[in-house]
Design a protein around this nucleic acid. Structure first.
Lengths: 106, 106
DNA sequence: CTCCTTGGTTAGTCGAGACTAACCGTAAGC
DNA sequence: GCTTACGGTTAGTCTCGACTAACCAAGGAG
């Protein structure tokens, strides 16, 4: 499931975000992802599991290798949260600026 | 400073996100924010400190009360991260779908 | 069949951070 | 002056999760 809670929780950890960003330009196998990261392959597997549960990645097996790629649903959930927030927060901010400038004139 | 790292780290904790969301519709004092939340006021203060360091909120004092409001810079940093990700990730995904359907035809 | 590669799982450790309790400082009202 | 309300800070506890080491399962090559 791709709710905002899980997406945020998944993207918090820097290592996990690094894993996720390695999938930006296309599908990768687990070993490829782990190569160059400062953690062991099992750690990467665990991160991928969390990302998958958050709806951020998708996987398929190809022989003995397992290919991961980005699942747009997760990014969509996050964008929805941000958009919904964007409007009300920014208009509240604008109203506040307005109020402050009125306050100034008094 | 409002870099993506800090913004993500700040918005991870559910309680802290609840604090942040209470500012969505305008400025609030610390006591107001804490009222109704399942944590004590000092905890809210600590959360606000983290949010401030992440560039997500701004504060000013008004007598003995301290008013917090949303700082657009934090949300902007997050939107930048998401946007930059959105394009390449989604086009990579589209390319993958294309590749898969070609694979199908073989 | 054996061997090698790839990768998911489990057990156990260790550090980070969320929280409360107790404190201090400060502004407003009397 | 004294008191009350509002909030930030510190000390200490405790839970959660990131990580490694060791394991197991399965597919491909010979």
């Amino acid at each position: 499931m791709a709710n905002a809670n899980r997406v945020f929780a998944a993207l918090t950890d820097p290592t996990r975000r690094a894993v996720f960003e390695r999938l930006r330009h296309g599908p990768r196998a687990v070993g490829e992802i782990a190569r160059g990261l400062p953690v062991t392959r099992p750690a990467v597997s665990q991160h991928l599991k969390v990302l998958k549960e958050a709806g951020l990645v998708d996987d398929r097996s190809e022989g003995t290798r397992r290919i991961y790629q980005i699942d747009p649903r997760g990014l969509g959930a996050m964008r929805a949260w941000l958009d919904q927030f964007w409007d009300s927060a920014l208009s509240a901010f604008a109203a506040e600026v307005e109020r402050a400038s009125k306050e100034e004139k008094k």
